[in-house]
Each structure stands twice: as structure tokens, then as C-alpha cells.
Computed example of a mutant assay.
Amino acid sequence: MESQTGKTALITGATSGIGLELARLFAQDGYNLVLVARQEDSLRRVATDFEQQYNIRATTIAKDLMETNAPEEIYQQTRQQGITVDVLVNNAGMGEYGKFATETDLQKELGIIQLNATSLVHLTKLYLKEMVTRNEGKILMLASVVSAIPNPLMAVYGATKSFIYSFAEALRNELKDTQITVTALMPGATATDFFNKAGAQNAKVTDSDLADPAKVAKDGYDALMQGKDKVVSGFKNKMQVAMSHVLPDTVVSEAMRNMMNEKGYEEEADEEHESLTPLAIGLGLATVVLAAGIFLTASYTNANWYEKRRYKEKLKSLTNALTPSLN
């Protein structure tokens, strides 16, 4: 079977959730696929389905990216088969729910760092070198809304997503004079098996309006193909990210903690914290952001040179946060 584009996309975590939907979008557009996940039987089912539906070639590589040697083995396998990876999709990721100090398992968290961050860096290093040699390629990084917002009760997961976002933005700058693009996809809570695997199935956030993984994947795919640096999927999530640029981290963290607490959990809190429900913040966010912009603009006029520099940075962050919200 021959690809319509002659190009190949490698997708990690490709058998479910956002990864599966991204693989489907590439297949629909005629890309050959390299599907990476842990279970060979699941990989083969997806590969066979896509080959039959879209007349493309799907190669499967069963590897656990929590293992330190997995990225090199994946790379060597594609080289041995003569596969050129034109698009790298670093999608695989996992979380662990609970208080870091007393409730979560250290070994699992170290594995999460290996999966979410270390293996992602390793795969990117290997395939990006080839892209630079060809001066062509695309990379999609699965970041998250929590790349910009502290994530209590999933502290390690949130930290890895912040790392991914920063890494993606830095690489994009380094590659600005090439034909290679790096795009960060930043979804919020999505209707996948993520919360079950993380042990967070009873978190309040799971009762919210979870995003459709197909819609998230389409947002990421479109942004990747357009060469954008990032995309926050969903209007509510765009506003959350905008909020993170103008409100104190303590306020944003408290709001996120409220969403991540278990259902039925009531924490003793002062009136200020009780008012920081996601709904209240969501309803008032547009006003807060607008007011913050007006305040910063007005303050800039009478500021000294140092304060003006700080205000310019805040205004820039606010503008960047609002731009995707208004598109």
C-alpha cells in the first residue's frame, strides 16, 4: 500500500485517546504511520483498521517509553526498516493522583518523568537531527492547560507538562531559520482513560464537561499543519490559560485544587478561597482579564523604566494568552 503523501508520521500512545484520533487524522490525509504503544495486539488492531480504511502503510512498534532504552530501540527499528519520519508526535503521557508528600508512589512518579519528559526529549533528539539534515519536518508535543497552571494533586504530571511546553517553545526559537516547525497542543480535561489510569477517577474534574478527544486532536492537527507554535484546545481552556497570566499563582492553584479534590470533599477554607470555584472564576474571567489589561496600560504611563519593562512583559503575556481565545 502506498501513501498519498509519501510521508510518515510517528505517533506515541497511538492506540487510544488523543493519540488514536491524531493517527486517524494523519491516515485520512494519506500519511503512512508508525504507531508506538505498549500492547502489540492493540497496535495491530489499529494498524489493520487504518490500512484497510485509508490505503496507507502502518508500522507497529510495541515499546514501553517508561523504559530508558525504548527511544533508541524505536529509532533503530525505523532506521532498519528504511522509514523516514517526517512528523513526530510526542503524545504518550501518564499521571499519578494524590498528595506528593504522603500519598503518591515515588517509583511510579519517576516512571512518569521518564515517559512524559525524558523519553520525549530522547525521541525528539534522535528524529530532529534527521529533520535538520533534510531541513524539513514537523513535531507536535502534547502539553496541557496545566503547562501554564500549577496542578495540585498531580504535581509531577503538571511539572512534566510545563517542561514540555517550555521545551517546545525553546526548540521552535532554535529552529526559526529552518523549515521545521514545533507545535504544542494544550488540551484541558479530556474524555479518555487518563483519569482512570492516574487513579483520579473520583476527582471533581471528571464531573465537568470533558473534551472530545477527536476535537482536541483536530485542533492540534490543524495547528501543526499551519505551523503554529501552540494551540489551547477549547474556549474554556483558553480562558483558563489567559487567567494564569494575570492572576497570582496562589489563586490559580487554589482554583485548580478545588477541581482536583475528590468528589464530596469539603476543605475548611476562608471566604476568599470558598469563592474561588471554577464556575465563579469562569464567569468573571473575561472581566478580570480586560480589567488587568486596562490597569497595566494605565500604570505604564507613569512608571519608571524598570516598572515599564515589567508592565510590557505582563502586557505581552496577556496579549499572547488572549490571542488564541479570540480566534
Rank of each mutant, 00 (worst) to 15 (best):
T8W: 04
S16P: 05
E21S: 03
V34G: 13
R38L: 12
D41A: 15
S42K: 12
D49T: 08
Q53L: 10
Q53Y: 04
T59H: 11
L65Q: 08
M66Q: 13
N69L: 06
I74F: 09
Q77Y: 13
Q77H: 14
R79Q: 14
Q80L: 12
G82T: 05
L88K: 02
A92T: 00
M94S: 14
Y97I: 06
G98C: 09
K99V: 08
F100W: 10
T104V: 06
Q107F: 01
E109F: 05
L110Q: 05
Q114T: 09
N116Q: 04
L120E: 03
V121M: 13
Y127A: 08
V132I: 13
T133C: 12
R134M: 11
K138H: 09
L142V: 12
V145R: 10
A148I: 00
M154Q: 10
T160H: 05
S162H: 05
S162T: 01
F163P: 01
A168R: 00
A170D: 04
K176G: 01
D177S: 09
T178W: 02
T181M: 00
T183V: 06
A189E: 03
A189N: 02
T192I: 04
K197Y: 01
A198Q: 04
Q201C: 00
N202W: 07
N202Y: 06
V205K: 00
V205W: 01
L210E: 00
Q226K: 10
K230D: 07
V231R: 07
F235R: 08
F235Q: 15
S244W: 12
T250A: 07
E254H: 15
E254F: 14
A255Y: 02
R257H: 02
G264I: 00
S275T: 03
P278T: 05
T287G: 13
V289I: 15
V289Q: 02
A292N: 12
I294N: 13
F295G: 00
T301C: 10
R309L: 08
E313Y: 04
L315V: 10
